[in-house]
Structures are given as structure tokens and as C-alpha cells.
Design a binder for these strands. Sequence first.
RNA 1: GUCCCAAUAGCUCAGCUGGAUAGAGCACUUGAUUCCUAAUCAAGAGGUCGUGAGUUCGAAUCUCGCUUGGGACACCA
Length: 528
Amino acid sequence: MKQKVISVLKKYIEEEVILEKPKDISFGHFATPVAFSLAKKLRKSPMLIADEFAKVFSREKMFESVEAVKGYINFKLNEQFLNEYAMQALSNEDSFAKEKKEEKILLEYVSANPTGPLHIGHARGAVLGDSLCRIGKHLGYNISSEYYVNDAGNQIKLLGLSIFLVGQDNFLDTKVCWPEEYYRGEYIFDLACMARERFGIEIFEDEDNIDTLSDWGKEKMLELIKSNLKSCGIEFDNYVSEKELYDKWNEVFEKLKTNDAVYEKDGKWWLKSTKYGDEKDRVVIREDGRATYLAGDIIYHDDKFKRGYNKHINIWGADHHGYIARMKAAIKFLGYDENRLEVILSQMVSLLKGGEPYKMSKRAGNFILMSDVVEDIGSDALRFIFLSKKSDTHLEFDVDMLKATDSSNPIYYINYAHARVNQLFEKSGKKPKDVFDVELKDLSEDAKNLLFNSLLLSEVLEEAFKQRALQKLTEYLKNLASSVHKFYNEHKVIGSNDEDIYLKIFAMSALSIRVGLKLIGIKAKYKM
RNA sequence: GUCCCAAUAGCUCAGCUGGAUAGAGCACUUGAUUCCUAAUCAAGAGGUCGUGAGUUCGAAUCUCGCUUGGGACACCA
């Protein structure tokens, strides 16, 4: 819609036209402050310019009215235009707002180490990534999701060791000497029990078995992570194993040497990341010849960039922000454009329950488990609350609010609006399809506004995706639901003269709610 | 010490590529149900947008300083 209006305005104005939504819909459907920016250039007052443009624009038949108010130019779209637009949407729900895009995007998120269950912080990134991916796909981007599995390195060894020691401690008479670092939490005990069943108690007798336990435990944890994700409807297009990528290390290391990206000092190999803005150079190969974590990530990014994407989006926890500089430096050293990597940081989450801090899981050590919260409030509520705040601010919320079955719970409120529309159709004995062809004319102002708001989904999706600001979508859904409830209260639908017209508009509202929810991974309810 | 994120209503937060009277939800007050789900709606009250300066016709929004809070500064991943 917006694009169509802008393309019409461009016929008259050379400058870039910013079209915004007026604060109050009574001003119009769209508005532009373009007269202000032109005022300097033309050396005329914004009011005069706006007046002149308003006269010119009102010749366009898509507008019902164009008015100049205090320098703004306000547009109202006419019924015919809105009707045509609604027809397109209703006749093909799945492709509403869809448009083929050229950009090919790889979205990497979660990528948590397979050494334990996911906690609530992971969940935030997971929900954000999954929803971004869904919206991107819907909008027509060629976008795929990927999970980078850190299945090499110390933490996996540590996992095996932890299982081994806990097994010794519980099942054998061995006196266990606990190291400083190992994984705590009851899930390790669970793993030890499972290992005893799988391998027999002998597994804990010989330290040589630690590697076996590492490999096995890692697989178990990856299964657990996948099931955690699945409980929120999240599945990845692709999983990439760090371990398997290490075969390519020599090749990548040679490339770094050729590009003068590394040097040897104190028996170690360093990446010259300071050259591209990092605080200091970083070790990639330790004195004993083992590669660091960074080395693994360099191979991974080399691999990713070879695959021909225009854009790489990584969602990381905010604690990784210091990592961005060195990663971008590495990418530049490998000969790629580092601007093709975009990192979204997701900030911390704190949970309350009934005003008190949410209890940590003993099972996991000192974390709030994603699975506990999903079990508590459900996937829909969790997804909604995460997406309704910007990802780069610290988020705090009370889970009890999301269990309420009234308007204080946004997801409930939105579902109720959707279910209400469905009920109207049931009561009227009609199907949405029956009213698709009804011509929308002589609409009251509020009917037209509801229709317009329902049609805005495509604009909202584009904006939310481009700005990576999904709270715009949840905000929109709340507002649309509110408009539906309001209209419902003010107008008797069934039996009225305008029954079919109202039903058609409601069908459009429900469609936007349903599609909007689907894109954040929530299935709209037809009945409460 | 350096870097990142934040500071908006009693609470949780939108708004930030400068623009119309700063918004929403919760909590609070009042009203609406012989009528499609009151699981809802309407109305009211509540703000020196942390602070000081600057840029501008115009600043919650941009720039700089300050204060406060959270986080990061590994040869761990």
C-alpha cells in the first residue's frame, strides 16, 4: 500500500518522500512531512508548499481526500483502492505481502554449546532468530537458518570428564578428586545414569573412557537442545559441526598466512586483528599446537562466506559483543567484505514470578531453564513476550502476567479477537469465502479505519524485518486486536444491513492477525 | 581504565533515519451486559522524556559532558 502511494507521489516530487502513519487516524491514513524539508530549498513556508501539493495530489484517484494541515500533507485512501487491496489479500492468504526478493541471507543463531540444556537467555535469541527467519521467508527473501555446533574443544572434554567423575562418585567406591572446573547440575547425574545403562558400570573404571563419554554425552545434549527448541516450534535448516570443519584448518591457515594476517610469537600464532580495529591481537594457535575457539570460528565463517550469501546475520548473546571486532577483522583478512556480517546482540533476561525472582533450576546449575519456562507459561506466551521488546535492551517480566486469561495478557487478548471473528462466521452460518466478493462501499469512517489497519500488515512486516525490530509486529497485533474488539462492541454484525460488509472486513482483520501470529510462531485460536 | 546497552507515567515497556496534543499494557477511579463470548468496551487520572549544554524554524529523538544501573574486556567456549 505504502509503496503504491509513494510511487504515485514520486511523479510530482523528486526528493525522497517519507510516508508516515499519522498519530491519529482521523488525520488520514498516511501523512508526509515533505513540505518541511522542501521549505528550505524552495524558500517558501511549509504551509504554502503543503497547500499546493495537496491540490495536485488530490487529482489522483486512489485518494479520497488530500489535506494540508500545519505543513503536513494528509492522505485518505478511497474505498475502491482499499477494496481491491483486500481482495488480493483474501484470495491468497499465504502470499499476502509476499514479493520475491533477490537477497540471499544466512541466519545463524542459538549455537549454544552442546554441554547442557538451553537456558532462558538462549531462548530469547532462539525465538528472535526463528521469527526473523519466518518473516524473511514470508516476505520472499531467500533465507536459511543455521546452528553452529561447538562439538570440539575443551568444553566437550569437560562434559565427558564431568559425567565420568559423577559416575565414579555415585556408582563406584572410588574417592573422587574434584577438579576446579567441571559441569555441575543434576543433568550430569542423569547423564551418568544413562551412561551406566548404555555402557555398563565399567565405563567409569578407566579414564581412557572419558573420550567415549564426551562423544556420547555431546550427542545426548544435542538431542536435548533440539527437543528444547522444538517445544517452541523452532527447527533449523542446517546444523554445522565445528569438529568436521577442522579438516579445513590447514587450508584456511595457509590463506591467513598468505594474506599476512597471522604471525608467530612466543611459540604461538596470532591474528593481527588490531590492524582492523580490535583492541589487541588474538591467539589462534596455542603453544602446544592446539587451535583456539577463534580459529574454529574463522574456519566456520570462511565456510559460510564461500557459500554465496549476500548477508550473514549472527544472533549472539550480549556478552559476546567484544567478539565482533576480531571476527570482522578475520573476515576481512580472509578477503571478504566484513559488512556482509551483521551481528544482532540479544540482551539479558530476568524473570519474575509473582513479583519474586524466578527460581533457578537445580538441574542445570545456576540457570533458569528454557524448558521450565515453556512448561510454565507455554511456547506462545514466551515467544510473544520476547518479541515484544527490542532485543538490545535488558528484559524483565513476570511470568504470572502471561498466564492470565484476560486482557492483561496480550497473547490471550489477540487470540480472543481472532476467535471472536470466527464465532461471528459460525453464528452467521457463512464462510469467509462467501463474503469475499462483497463490494465494500459507503463504509462508515470506523469501518474504513478497521479495514485499513487490517491491511497494514505488509507494511509492518517489511519494517519489522528491515529494522530487525519485531516488537513492531507484536505491537501491531495488539493494536489490531484492540480495533477488532472495539468495532465488535460498537456494531451489531449479525442481522444488520451491513452484515456481509462487516464480515468481510472482519475476515481481513482475522487474516492479518492469523498471518502475523504465524510468523512469530504462534497458531491463532479459533475458539477460546 | 576502555568498550557495549540502557535511563520515558507508580510498575513493565513502545516511540528515537528530528516534525502535529509524548503512547500502550498493568495497577487506580467511574460507567456500559433484556442484544453476535462483559474472556469485552468506554471515560478519567497519572509525565520538567536521568541531568547540563550544543546543533535547529523545531529535540524524547542528533552531538558532547556528567550521574546512575546492567554487561563485556582469555591462550574458556
